[in-house]
């Protein structure tokens, strides 16, 4: 589903290179975890995959379902099924969560040549998805993310993911700022979306999240490269021993 080939990318404004020859393949149905110390380029990778213009790809390619997506703008990528659950979801004052969801859903449908959802149909879908994530319907009337607690913001992200039914889900430190109950609700939400035709990339610092969302593969990112890949035991190993050994081994 996703193939990143020898990717090099830098910050557009000052030319700082963040991603330096990154290779990664994620298959349909796979849950891939990306771990790594602070500043290794994890969040940057999520932005580059979703097309944020603050970053420039200088070399390499990103293939999504066999096609390069480098020329697509972020909304086109989204409509083709790439979803990013933000680490820090932004507030949009005055725009009710429900309204935002409807606009997003219908814009994506329009892009794909599908008919708009009828309002009753839309409301039914939202209510079902919200109930699964234990989201109070009252919250959906509030402006998006304005005054939401950390947990509410993350649940709202997963709610959007459930409604938009993307093919490639990227979760950027979705566990940050969550207590254990909220972590479980969010993880259940993500697990419910696992399917043979959908891939999930989980970016995290901690093994804890991976106890709930069990990955098929784990990749260690360091200085803009994947320096080690393995199965879920790699995450446990990192939790116990830290990154130092792997970094040293890669440098050797």
């Amino acid at each position: 589903m996703l193939e990143i080939r020898n990717l090099h990318a830098r910050i557009a404004e000052d030319g700082t290179e963040i991603i330096r020859g990154l290779n990664l393949t994620v298959k349909a149905g796979e849950v891939a975890a990306i771990m790594g110390p602070n500043g290794s380029g994890k969040s940057t990778l999520s932005y580059i995959l979703s097309g944020r213009s603050d970053y420039e790809v200088t070399e390499g390619d990103i293939l999504y379902n066999g096609e390069s997506i480098l020329e697509l703008d972020p909304s086109e990528r989204a409509a083709k099924g790439i979803f990013l659950a933000f680490q820090y979801p932004v507030e949009i004052p005055g725009v009710a969560t429900m309204q935002f969801l409807k606009v997003a859903l219908n814009e994506q449908r329009k892009f794909r040549g599908e008919a708009e959802l009828s309002t009753p149909d839309f409301i039914r879908r939202v209510k079902e998805a919200a109930a699964k994530l234990q989201i109070n319907p009252e919250m959906l009337k509030r402006p998006l993310n304005v005054g939401f607690s950390g947990g509410e913001k993350k649940r709202a992200e997963i709610l959007q993911m459930a409604l938009l039914e993307p093919k490639l889900c990227i979760l950027d430190e979705t566990d940050s700022g969550l207590d254990i109950d909220a972590l479980k609700i969010v993880s259940d939400g993500v697990n419910a979306l696992r399917s043979p035709d959908r891939a999930v990339i989980v970016i995290t610092h901690y093994q804890r999240l991976l106890e709930y969302i069990v990955p098929d593969s784990v990749h260690v990112l360091y200085k803009g490269q994947v320096i080690k890949s393995g199965d879920k035991s790699l995450a446990l190993d990192l939790e116990a021993n830290g990154y130092a050994d792997i970094i040293d081994a890669a440098a050797a």
Binding site: P74, S75, F83, L84, A104, E107, Q108, Q160
Partner: peptide, 17 residues
């Protein structure tokens, strides 16, 4: 960027905001 990432094109995103 948040709106774009949800599939809302630029002009529609500005109108929404």
């Amino acid at each position: 960027f948040y709106c774009l990432q949800r599939g809302i094109p630029t002009e529609a995103a500005i109108a929404l905001i």
